[in-house]
Protein backbone atom coordinates (compact mmCIF):
# COMPACT_ATOMS: atom_id res chain seq x y z
CA UNK A 1 0.00 0.00 0.00
CA UNK A 2 2.75 2.38 0.97
CA UNK A 3 4.65 1.56 -2.20
CA UNK A 4 1.59 2.21 -4.33
CA UNK A 5 1.10 5.63 -2.72
CA UNK A 6 4.73 6.41 -3.29
CA UNK A 7 4.47 5.52 -6.96
CA UNK A 8 1.21 7.42 -7.40
CA UNK A 9 2.52 10.59 -5.83
CA UNK A 10 3.52 12.81 -8.65
CA UNK A 11 6.61 14.86 -8.27
CA UNK A 12 6.00 18.47 -9.13
CA UNK A 13 7.58 19.18 -12.48
CA UNK A 14 10.38 21.70 -12.33
CA UNK A 15 8.87 23.83 -15.10
CA UNK A 16 5.71 24.50 -13.08
CA UNK A 17 7.84 25.52 -10.09
CA UNK A 18 9.68 27.90 -12.41
CA UNK A 19 6.43 29.38 -13.65
CA UNK A 20 5.06 30.00 -10.16
CA UNK A 21 8.29 31.65 -9.02
CA UNK A 22 8.36 33.84 -12.11
CA UNK A 23 4.77 34.96 -11.71
CA UNK A 24 5.51 36.19 -8.21
CA UNK A 25 8.77 37.96 -8.98
CA UNK A 26 7.45 39.54 -12.17
CA UNK A 27 4.36 40.86 -10.39
CA UNK A 28 6.65 42.41 -7.79
CA UNK A 29 8.88 43.94 -10.48
CA UNK A 30 5.89 45.42 -12.26
CA UNK A 31 4.55 47.00 -9.10
CA UNK A 32 7.77 48.98 -8.94
CA UNK A 33 7.67 50.05 -12.57
CA UNK A 34 7.30 53.73 -13.22
CA UNK A 35 8.07 54.62 -9.65
CA UNK A 36 10.56 57.42 -9.07
CA UNK A 37 14.12 56.18 -8.60
CA UNK A 38 14.22 57.33 -4.98
CA UNK A 39 11.43 55.00 -3.83
CA UNK A 40 13.55 52.00 -2.76
CA UNK A 41 15.85 54.31 -0.79
CA UNK A 42 12.89 56.12 0.78
CA UNK A 43 11.40 52.78 1.78
CA UNK A 44 14.66 51.64 3.35
CA UNK A 45 15.16 54.82 5.30
CA UNK A 46 11.58 54.90 6.55
CA UNK A 47 12.05 51.36 7.77
CA UNK A 48 15.20 52.41 9.63
CA UNK A 49 13.39 55.27 11.35
CA UNK A 50 10.52 53.04 12.43
CA UNK A 51 12.99 50.49 13.76
CA UNK A 52 14.49 53.05 16.11
CA UNK A 53 11.24 52.84 18.06
CA UNK A 54 9.80 49.40 17.42
CA UNK A 55 11.12 46.23 15.90
CA UNK A 56 9.37 45.32 12.64
CA UNK A 57 10.15 42.82 9.90
CA UNK A 58 11.41 43.78 6.45
CA UNK A 59 8.06 42.99 4.88
CA UNK A 60 6.06 44.81 7.54
CA UNK A 61 6.20 48.01 5.55
CA UNK A 62 4.29 48.66 2.36
CA UNK A 63 4.71 51.81 0.42
CA UNK A 64 3.01 52.93 -2.75
CA UNK A 65 2.74 56.04 -4.80
CA UNK A 66 -0.48 56.82 -6.62
CA UNK A 67 -0.81 59.67 -9.03
CA UNK A 68 -4.10 61.40 -9.48
CA UNK A 69 -4.84 64.34 -11.72
CA UNK A 70 -2.38 66.85 -10.36
CA UNK A 71 -1.19 65.42 -7.10
CA UNK A 72 0.55 62.27 -5.93
CA UNK A 73 -0.35 60.37 -2.79
CA UNK A 74 2.28 58.46 -0.89
CA UNK A 75 0.63 55.66 1.02
CA UNK A 76 2.52 54.02 3.84
CA UNK A 77 1.34 50.92 5.68
CA UNK A 78 3.26 49.56 8.62
CA UNK A 79 2.24 46.44 10.47
CA UNK A 80 3.34 46.73 14.07
CA UNK A 81 3.88 43.62 16.16
CA UNK A 82 1.49 42.92 19.03
CA UNK A 83 2.87 44.47 22.17
Amino acid sequence: MKLLEFLKRERKKSASVAKERLQIIVAHQRSQRGQPDYMPMLERELLEVIRRYVHVDDDAIQISLDSEDNCSVLELNVTLPKS
Binding site: S14, A15, S16, K19, L22
Partner: peptide, 8 residues
Protein backbone atom coordinates in the same frame (compact mmCIF):
# COMPACT_ATOMS: atom_id res chain seq x y z
CA UNK B 1 8.02 19.00 -17.75
CA UNK B 2 11.50 20.34 -17.25
CA UNK B 3 11.29 23.44 -19.41
CA UNK B 4 8.88 26.38 -19.36
CA UNK B 5 6.36 26.08 -22.17
CA UNK B 6 5.90 28.72 -24.82
CA UNK B 7 2.49 29.48 -23.32
CA UNK B 8 4.03 29.96 -19.86
Amino acid sequence: GDMLTLDD
